[in-house]
Design a protein around this nucleic acid. Structure first.
Length: 575
DNA sequence: GCCGTTTTCGGCCCGACTGTTTTCAGTCG
């Protein structure tokens, strides 16, 4: 069984134990174990082979043994028995907002309800309201929750919600009662997809702020309306929460609601180790004989300083070691959007782009790029109007001519997004590829190869002397299409060994290679190219989303190929 | 079930909100 499935299995064990009313710390240990595997920086297989699973913080003897059994046999008696003891439909009831393990257990034990369907019927028949501890209101909320489950489950691409966030922030900041306003949560951490939006306001007069928020024209339903917290659901299902706090608490709350949960746990543990308890409300002394000094902060920087930490940018707050790094002043100086000097992997009307070569270069110049790489599709990508050898060489000529004319300040590199064929060979003869300045090699077909074959295929393309960089490594389309099965660590190894670049495709629906792999890979010398994969002049600006993910991947300017000046880039491409 | 320059037991983050109660449990973030 692979790592992802094992993580899923541990998570399910945790839920099942919770449903059975087990010791909360026991099921939390399974959750912690699953998370430890998820954020593993070392190779999972190596850890198992060398029997070093228990070296991972959060995995002890019992979990290590279960993980090993799952890995080797794909089965686990403990899990099978546990699963058999709880009807399958009980789990899906947990998805309803407001329902947790305890309540679901009551439905199951008192009313023998074992599915969402039956729960809905019970609500409609008024049976839930009769249960002790429940009433008409709970019953209504459960029913409404079931009916809106689809909307609650939905996630959104970061870029999709960005304009809505800007609009709400602008509206909030325009209110006279609002001193400060931010959007916290996964949006602020620049996670590739977000589930809901958490707004935070500093104000001494919350009521008018709450009124404005709950009366926004896009609001479909107000699901909570208090003096410190309100929740709304917009048309289309997007959830937004707003919290209002006094200014003195704002930065504690901002830090808390920016999260992640894992980051907050680490921060609280650090605070406790220094005798303080940290929360969204501020910081308190744990022991009364050791009173805390007045702890007010005017920024998040000051908050981190209270605990001897350097400022941790929101993108890094995923609980993957950033607190330790911050305590040793060892955090990376993250790459910034303005560091980007040009972009590779862009399309024109020659293949499936919307704008001509000239229009793309003109826009690149307007954006201040020193260089622009054109990489249209290769001949096998029929669906994308891939270029024949003749057309490709024609475009190459046009690019050389454009550069010679000095019509634009932006230098144009002639490249191609070359299909990696099923056997790992490239889509043109070497003689053609050698004419170009660079080659982005990407997989576009035969996406269902098994992991070994797909990994071999991509590594073979990386070993080709003409390949400059690997395009969208996993092929995922966020919220739409899963990544194809490929052993990413092995591909990274091959890229490093062959001195090839891996792209961070900045299209908001790709963001591929995933930010979770970059930190370790870049430490080992892997170069990144942040490419917008632009199919129009508007999409050239999408490189920004790639920079955000690069920052989540701890990347510094020195690891980003297209943060280098033209001269260095040209020298690299000439080899 | 995990963890430990307070290490083999006794902790494990914590507080608001909701709906139900009449002092609180469950859920959530």
């Amino acid at each position: 069984m692979d790592k992802a499935s094992i993580i899923g299995c541990l998570e399910e064990i945790a839920v099942l134990l919770e449903l059975k009313g087990e010791n909360p710390f026991k099921f939390r240990a399974y959750e912690n174990g699953a998370r430890a595997l998820e954020t593993l920086e070392e190779n999972f297989e190596t850890l198992i082979d060398e029997k070093r699973l228990t070296d991972v913080s959060g995995i002890g003897a019992a979990l290590a043994e279960k993980i090993e059994t799952l890995y080797k046999t794909g089965k686990l008696d403990y899990y099978d028995k546990l699963k058999a003891s709880v009807p399958a439909g009980v789990l899906e009831m947990l998805e309803v907002p407001g329902l947790g393990a305890k309540k679901v257990r009551v439905f199951y034990e008192k009313l023998k309800i074992t599915s969402l369907e039956e729960l809905k019927e019970a609500c409609e028949a008024g049976k839930i309201a009769e249960l002790p501890g429940f009433g008409a209101k709970s019953q209504d909320n459960i029913l409404s929750g079931i009916n809106h489950l689809e909307a609650y489950r939905k996630r959104y691409m970061w870029a999709t919600v960005e304009p809505q966030v800007e609009a709400v922030l602008t509206g909030l900041r325009a209110l006279p009662e609002v001193e400060l306003a931010e959007c916290a949560g996964s949006f602020r951490r620049k996670l590739e997809t977000v589930g809901d939006l958490d707004f935070l306001v500093a104000s001494e007069a919350p009521e008018p702020v709450m009124d404005w928020f709950t009366r926004m024209p896009e609001v479909e339903k107000v699901t909570g309306h208090g003096t410190t917290k309100s929740s709304v659901r917009l048309e289309g299902g997007l959830q937004m929460d707003l919290r209002v706090v006094p200014k003195a608490q704002f930065f504690f709350a901002l830090h808390h609601f920016t999260g992640s949960k894992e980051h907050n746990v680490k921060m609280r543990q650090r605070a406790l180790s220094q005798g303080f308890s940290l929360s969204e409300w501020g910081v308190k002394a744990v022991h009364e004989d050791h009173p805390a000094p007045i702890q007010e902060v005017d920024s998040e920087e000051e908050l981190f300083q209270l605990f001897g930490l350097h400022y941790i940018p929101p993108e890094l707050r995923e609980g993957v070691g950033e607190v330790d790094y911050a305590s040793h002043d060892a955090l990376p100086k993250l790459v910034k959007p303005e560091d980007i000097r040009g972009v590779f992997h862009n399309h024109t009307t020659a293949s499936d782009g919307k704008n001509t070569l000239e229009a793309m270069v003109a826009e690149a110049e307007r954006l201040g790029f020193e260089y622009l790489g054109i990489a249209d599709h290769s001949k096998s990508s029929f669906q994308a109007n891939g270029l024949s050898e003749e057309k490709l060489l024609e475009q190459l000529k046009a690019i050389r001519k454009l550069n010679a004319s000095k019509q634009y300040k932006t230098h144009v590199f002639a490249g191609v997004e070359c299909d990696i064929l099923k056997d790992g060979s490239l889509d043109y003869e070497d003689a053609v590829l050698e004419e170009l300045d660079y080659v982005v090699a990407s997989v576009h077909n035969a996406l269902t190869l098994d992991e070994a074959a797909m990994t071999r295929r991509i590594i073979r393309a990386l070993e080709h002397p003409c390949t400059t960089m690997l395009g969208h490594l996993s092929g995922r389309l966020l919220l739409k299409r899963e990544a194809y099965t490929v052993n990413i660590p092995k591909v990274i190894d091959a890229a490093i060994a062959n001195k090839k670049i891996i792209e961070l495709n900045a299209s908001p629906k790709r963001l591929d290679m995933d930010w979770r792999y970059w930190h370790k890979a870049a430490d080992r010398g892997l170069l990144c190219s942040i490419n917008p994969d632009a199919h129009s002049i508007e999409q050239l600006k999408n490189y920004r989303y790639g920079v955000y993910c690069a920052r989540k991947g701890w990347l510094q300017k020195c690891s980003v190929f297209n943060a280098r000046p033209l001269k260095e880039v040209s020298a690299f491409l000439r080899g």
